[in-house]
């Protein structure tokens, strides 16, 4: 996901970035080490995005970056200026849960819930691109999101159901 920053890096190693986060424009000065996950959690207090492995392997930190599901813990904020980021906090509209969130609740698609934010974002990215994904497509879309609790069965059911409802 690395890309050329449109804004120059200052001598102090910081970069000014502007991001649309859940539809709100944010202007921030970020350090070289700061990932999108760090910015979301520590700078914007959006802690729904979780950090599990912090190395792009578990998927708990998944957010949408310009509509694509990415691991926000290994994507540097300084490289994504002018992008749009959607997090789990951006799914419900005015308190109204998305079909996907509702389906996760009804199917018991989470237990501890720590992977859920990332899981929802991966599933949301899929359903935004494919209205009626195949089972294979659902499994593939979620393969980067590790869930130890559910064994995925009820997650897959929830995503199928959300797709059928939409």
């Amino acid at each position: 996901m690395a890309r050329d920053s449109k804004t120059p890096t200052s001598k102090s190693g910081t970069t000014a970035v502007s991001l649309s986060v859940n539809g709100v424009d944010r202007k921030l000065v970020v350090g070289q080490h700061e990932s999108i996950a760090d910015v979301l959690r520590d700078r914007l207090d959006l802690r729904g995005t979780k950090i599990g492995c912090n190395s792009g392997e578990c998927g708990a930190c998944t957010v949408l970056l310009d509509g694509v599901a990415v691991c926000s813990c290994v994507t540097l904020a300084a490289t994504v200026s002018e992008s749009s980021v959607v997090t789990v906090e951006g799914l419900a509209r005015e308190g109204e849960l998305q079909e996907l969130q509702q389906a996760f609740m009804e199917h018991g698609a989470f237990q501890c819930g720590f992977c859920t934010s990332g899981m929802l974002m991966s599933a949301y990215a899929l359903l935004s691109q494919q209205r009626k994904p195949s089972d294979e497509a659902i499994r593939t879309a979620l393969q980067g999101n590790i869930c130890r609790c559910t064994g995925y069965v009820q997650i897959l059911n929830a995503v199928r159901d959300a797709a059928a409802r939409s």
């Binding site: 729904g48 997090t87 789990v88 799914l91 969130q101």
Partner: peptide
């Protein structure tokens, strides 16, 4: 539905 469900799907 579980008691702690809404918090877990909204972050």
């Amino acid at each position: 539905n579980r008691l702690d469900g809404a918090g877990k799907v909204t972050g």
